[in-house]
Amino acid sequence: MEINAAALKEKRRMLWILGALVLLSIVFYMTIDVNLSNSKFLAFSMKLRTPKMVAMVVAAFAIGAASIVFQSVINNTIVTPCLLGMNSLYTLIHTVIYFFFGAASIFVVNAKASFLLDLVMMVVTATIIYGVLFKKTNYNILYILLIGTVLSSLFGSMQEAMIRVMDPNDYDNLLLTLVAGFDNINGEIIVLCIVLLLLVAFFLRKDIALLDVITLGKHQAINLGVDYDKCIRRMLIGVTIYIAIATAMVGPVSFLGLILSNLSRQLLKSYRHTYLILGASMIGMLSLVAGQILVEHVFTYAIPVSIFITLGGGIYFLFLLLSAKKG
């Protein structure tokens, strides 16, 4: 039974409309300017477009879900994992592996092994760093933001320092994997990523319901019988894996998470995380696919889609900060 059936129905309808729009944009992206009469041309365009399309869908889901969950865990809607340096941490770890193992090692040559090692190290370090950070500052958002920004540039400079003393051949190799973007997708790990995303979602499905309660604040959550610390830890691990996957596949996209989570919250005005996550991911898919269509067919690859995102996201972030002041 539901406490507010009418409002819920409306929210479900919004999600269906979003879903339909996503499907439409995907179909449009796959078929625009394709020569359907010649099967060889068709096969070629599909081969080019399918990995890109899948990567966009996966990245949108990973970033949207991770941002919503992360925001609810620290109870603030203008912070994203990215803002606190999770992306830079991933880049740093990736560099460290190249630095110590060298370009000939299995962890570099084999994309899957490389990704899995990245992932394990990322989960371990990020849960320790961010877990301690949240606990020590007692979830005080100002400190978290401050320390997070410092961490972000610290990881960045550490990575830069390493690059400078690196073997030039290793560096060359590293750069190829670091500049992943929507036009240069790390295709070898797509299947692995999808499996991982689904596994994590399956294991955390119960915690998502607890997240609704956790947004009432730590004390209320404990009062209502939630094992707070354990749940937060599990959620953080999930977020880390999602961010690692997104970064490995399409590279760092700074403001995407912020845009997606806030648009989803504004659109759905709901506290239900299943809805918010679905909303954020679908808005992500829609904007990424639409953006990519623009990039490929209007700007003919002159401007990559991440530039649009960073530009729009930066402005949107300022807008959020300024409008939050008033309220």
């Binding site: 507010n4 109870n75 009432l216 604040g217 004390h219 209502l224 506290y271």
Partner: peptide, 19 residues
């Protein structure tokens, strides 16, 4: 100190008591 960042109606809040 109780502040909620979510858009939550009174009825929805009270419903959490049944969680």
């Amino acid at each position: 100190h109780n502040n909620v960042q979510m858009k939550l109606t009174v009825r929805e809040l009270v419903a959490f008591g049944r969680f």
